[in-house]
Design a protein around this nucleic acid. Structure first.
Lengths: 335, 335
DNA sequence: ATGAAAGCGCTAACAC
DNA sequence: GTGTTAGCGCTTTCAT
């Protein structure tokens, strides 16, 4: 049997209230008594039961973190950052994956409600609103990552994807490219629309506009990127550079270009988005628009902490950054 | 304020015991009463408080999962599988990352103790024993993944790495290679020793033995693999094939070969280990020894479930499997 | 500086 | 079938 506060109190010859006080470092306890209690705790190998504590304080010191899937390389750094920050502040995190499966999403929400988590962070862009609706009555703070839903109890931290789209497009433009394609991610995602919007806006500033023949549909994964690039390669005009929704898409695109016997960046430049861990190891290493993933997670958790501390907080937007590697080169085709 | 069992009882005009019975689907409650209670729960938006429940049942229905880091692509699939299996059985998982930092490891153990998790799964190969020692007095089942520590309260599930080493070596041998190198992972890991052992044993069966000049030290990451391969390339004899501790190492090796102006698999064959998600997308796609990562996680969680159900269980060893892609070819150098 | 006592929301005997 | 009641381990007034 695990030792309880009563055991400690008994052994130290004090009341449980006193033990509780030393646990919390209260100053109004005699040094001698404190020492006695601490020794008793040590001898008993006592560890406070935070479950019991949570029952009375109505704070579980735990948060729920729901993501779509850890298989998407974009999430691990975020999860890691959240966990680190949480641990540093005495919070634990329940990890939940929804797999974009409605049944699981429901199960996850129920689970988190039952556990009375102090807050929830959702990094599964599809439906932050679902969580919001299901959690409204329980009034737990909800922080969304890369999914701007607004409303009471909802805050978010995300990347400025329009700026990201601009960054990529401007870079390609500066390299002399004028026939620039875009491969979309899942169209339901706000992020692919925003990145496209940045591309469109930047082109517009040069008096150009997206050519539908240069835009293809991907799925946010390598397979979709490969297929989309394959299509783009047979279109007229053929793009000299392609901006991909994300790195996975770019990796697929890289493969399609190779399959066509063409080279990157010799024949065609490719730029990705996210800067996942593997981006530095593709062939050629992928030039990409980096999201500050670790920071995204850290800030989300900090937001939660502030919210829980009753502070005023506002949603946060982080700026993406261009990472130059070797998949883009100056355009050599005459204009 | 969130509704409690008392509110429901009050609203339905029954005692809390009856409400508790319908929550648990007890049969000895009148259909009419049940309906009334269920309606009250629905109207109140009532959700049982599992924290309170855990206090009395002494089962939190939560487990702790500790891994070194999510940055290592080997872990995500395992974590995902554990989470899925846990959710399916009504368990929640606290994710903890240790980052191989002793201070954090201590913090993690303390946190898990305080939370009174029902069991702990450790997938951070370095020191399962640490957890064991720190958790001994609390008597919580400990399941290790890919780390064979034995002793009371300790069970494990892992991959037969000696078999994996054999698989890789036999494959290379069958391709006609006779000058086969090995790039180690962190030497403190049992897994790199085991994989090497499989390599050694298989060579031995052909009357051969590892040539120290063909063995280099890596660090389990791309950087180390690149450096190691770079060294190997200038050794005499130069290997015609190299077995790498893991895929990350192989990816680095791939890069070193390219940097030397050589080709894979034309000049040198490379085989990895793990079959991480990215292995299919390297250039060329990586031939590798796959670990059943998802299964590793699922089985670990099942072991926990069985343990908690009081069943007899034994440790589990899974067999690796060869995944042929394009980084290995028949040896063309005369013997 | 310390103790007594009232819960937190729930389960599980035990009565009826 | 349903209700009463005694805790689970802890925090937190309120006394002293």
């Amino acid at each position: 049997m695990v030792a309880t506060i009563v055991d400690v109190a008994h052994k130290a010859g004090v009341s449980i209230a006193t033990v509780s006080r030393v646990i919390h470092g209260s100053t109004l306890v005699h040094p001698t008594t404190r020492a006695r209690v601490e020794q008793a705790m040590a001898e008993l190998g006592y560890t406070p039961n935070v479950v019991a504590r949570g029952l009375v304080t109505r704070r579980t010191q735990a948060i729920g973190l729901v993501i779509t899937s850890l298989a998407d390389p974009f999430f691990p750094p975020i999860v890691q950052a959240i966990e680190e920050t949480a641990l540093d502040h005495g919070y634990s995190v329940f990890l939940c994956t929804s797999s974009n499966d409605p049944a699981r999403e429901i199960a996850v929400v129920r689970q988190l409600r039952e556990r009375r988590v102090d807050a929830i962070i959702v990094a599964a862009s599809r439906v932050g609103s679902l969580y919001h609706a299901h959690l409204e009555d329980i009034k737990v703070p909800l922080v969304l990552i890369n999914n701007e839903q607004s409303g009471a109890y909802t805050y978010s931290v995300g990347t400025d994807d329009v700026a990201g789209g601009r960054l990529a497009t401007n870079y390609l433009l500066a390299l002399g490219h004028r026939t620039i394609g875009y491969i979309h991610g899942p169209l339901v995602k706000q992020s692919t629309q925003d990145r496209y919007r940045g591309y469109e806006l930047t082109l517009g500033e040069r008096g150009m506009k997206p050519d539908p023949r240069l835009v293809a549909a991907g799925d946010g994964q390598a397979a979709g990127g490969q297929k989309a690039m394959h299509e783009l390669l047979q279109r007229q005009p053929r793009p000299t550079a392609v901006f991909c929704f994300n790195d996975a898409t770019a990796i697929g695109a890289l493969r399609a270009v190779r399959a066509a016997g063409l080279s990157v960046p010799g024949d065609i430049s490719i730029i990705g988005y996210d800067d996942i861990a593997f981006a530095a190891y593709t062939e050629p290493p992928l030039t990409t628009v980096a999201q500050q993933t670790h920071e995204l997670g850290r800030r989300a958790m900090c937001l939660v902490l502030d919210l829980l501390a009753g502070k005023e907080v506002t949603s946060i937007t982080l700026l993406p950054q261009l990472i130059e590697r070797d998949s883009c080169a100056r355009c050599t085709h005459g204009e």
